[in-house]
């Protein structure tokens, strides 16, 4: 299945790119999903932001992490052929080099999705409302 990779504004671009290239070169059948969604705790605000208005901070952090995500993806696409060629010549060392790779295998396919965090859990909210209605109904019984 796909590998999920979260990009935040405090991640180092160089380590993100290095990991992504290594993953895509060594896992030819697995897609890599880079995203800026908050982690499971929903916390994209760091301790150093205390005292700032939360919504403004969240919006600014989102803007910088989206910009970083796009830059990281551009670098990955640019560096991928080089990384693949180098990996391939390592694998066939002493065998005349990696001449068997076709040119299209150097291209990465890219699929973009833009959404809103609030859109992610509409069902969970409905369920919790139903759960509360059910609790009230049982209390009344």
């Amino acid at each position: 299945g796909p590998h999920l990779m979260r990009v935040t504004d405090h991640h180092k671009m160089r380590s993100l790119v290095r990991f992504a290239l290594e993953f895509l070169v060594t896992n030819p059948a697995r897609p890599l999903v880079l995203h800026t969604m908050p982690n499971s705790r929903g916390n994209i605000i760091t301790e150093s932001d205390q005292g700032e208005p939360r919504t403004r901070i969240a919006r600014e952090k989102c803007t910088t992490s989206v910009a970083k995500l796009i830059s990281v993806v551009e670098i990955i696409k640019r560096e991928f052929p080089k990384a693949l060629r180098s990996h391939s010549s390592d694998a066939t060392a002493g065998d005349g080099g990696g001449t068997s790779l076709s040119s299209e295998s150097f291209n990465l396919h890219q699929y973009n999705e833009i959404g809103c965090k609030e859109d992610l859990f509409p069902l969970a909210e409905e369920e919790s409302n139903e759960d509360r209605a059910e609790r009230i109904r049982m209390l009344l019984e």
């Binding site: 796909p2 796009i70 396919h109 973009n112």
Partner: peptide
């Protein structure tokens, strides 16, 4: 909060196209 998701793949993914 808006988010962005970019999938990179060596093989085409018709479901995402």
């Amino acid at each position: 909060t808006p988010y962005m998701k970019i999938t990179l793949s060596r093989e085409p993914i018709p479901a995402l196209a």
